[in-house]
């Protein structure tokens, strides 16, 4: 559905995006992650034809914008990070204008439905100048959905929303995805991407440094998994027994909590539980600490930076 082939954008000596090969499948929610200046927005702008690539090409539905500009543009919806709106218009007028632009049939019904969905129908006749940041963000989301696009491209869609608004938009994204829409989300809110996306691509310094499912990215990065074992009563025999297990790398006792580091190839909680019981202990609780996307993101970008620095050296 969304594909870039060797997409590159250079501004003089600075390379904003370097040889990017993306492939987002139909019906997928793809998270596009990266620190500020990583090249995410430039990539999105190249996908939309608003920035010309220096090399390579971007394809939507297998076609470039040159091949079918209007046809493709009518099949994509875009939510930008900052909502630039005609502030003198009411929400209703604004959305009806865009509905006309996209040739939406029965625009009154469609605009009403979507405004109700984001709970702004009652405020439809207020001018946008008086809307809060969160409300304009929701109007931006509604605008992107008006023409029922096949692809949704969202740049920081929940950045200015309160927790309630975040949930509303998140539910909307999932709902639209269940209807078959392909969604590309660029975000710095890692927890949001983690909750919503099927796959993520991590950009750093214009390069795609990792691309996989969340679980696979974590697995690839994690050298060891930490398991917290809460014991009824801690005793040295248990620590000794666990330290002797082949898959245990380290142990550390803090009161009744025994922290056990294991290799990441398997979930060893059952083995640990059995070993504690064999040593005469009682397990009260077991908690497997997973690496968060945030940890993975930092690890990946730091690795990439050190690789780049290494190359330069």
């Amino acid at each position: 559905m969304i594909q870039t082939i060797g997409l590159t954008k250079e501004y003089g000596d600075f390379t904003a995006v370097r040889d990017l090969n993306l492939h987002v499948e139909k019906g997928e929610i793809y998270g596009f992650l990266g620190p500020n200046g990583a090249g995410k927005t430039t990539t999105i702008l190249m996908l939309l034809g608003l920035v010309k690539p220096t090399r390579g090409e971007a394809r939507l539905f297998g076609k470039t914008l040159m091949e079918d500009y209007f046809g493709l543009k009518r099949r994509i919806g875009v939510v930008s990070e900052v909502q630039y709106m005609y502030e003198e218009m009411t929400a209703w007028e604004y959305l009806c204008f865009f509905a006309d632009l996209y040739g939406v049939k029965d625009k009154v019904k469609r605009v009403s439905e979507l405004l109700e969905r984001v709970q702004l129908y009652d405020r439809r006749n207020e001018v946008l100048r008086g809307y809060s940041k969160g409300m304009t963000q929701k109007i931006g989301v509604v605008r992107a959905l008006l023409h029922d696009p096949d692809i949704l491209i969202m740049d920081e869609p929940v950045s200015s929303l309160d927790p309630y608004g975040i949930k509303e938009v998140r539910d909307l994204i999932k709902e639209e995805n269940q209807k078959g829409k392909t969604i590309l989300i660029s975000s710095h809110l890692l927890s949001e991407v983690e909750r919503t996306c099927h796959r993520v691509g991590i950009m750093n310094a214009g390069t795609l440094v990792a691309e996989d499912t969340m679980d696979n990215i974590r697995t690839r990065l994690v050298d060891e998994v930490e398991i917290e074992v809460e014991l009824e009563t801690a005793n040295p025999k248990i620590v000794e027994a666990l330290s002797g297990l082949p898959f245990v790398k380290r142990t550390q006792l803090n009161g009744n909590i025994l922290e056990v580091s294991t290799s990441p190839d398997k979930d060893y909680r059952l083995d640990i539980s059995k070993a504690v019981a064999a040593a005469g202990g009682v397990v009260v609780g077991l908690n497997r600490k997973q690496m968060s996307l945030e940890d993975a993101f930092i690890t990946i970008t730091e690795k990439h930076i050190s690789q780049l620095t290494g190359k330069e050296d």
Binding site: G49, Y69, R74, S80, L101, Y102
Partner: peptide, 14 residues
């Protein structure tokens, strides 16, 4: 200047 032009060009406007 307001950025509304960019939003138009997200859609079927050239």
């Amino acid at each position: 200047e307001r950025g509304t032009m960019e939003v138009l060009f997200y859609g079927p406007v050239d």
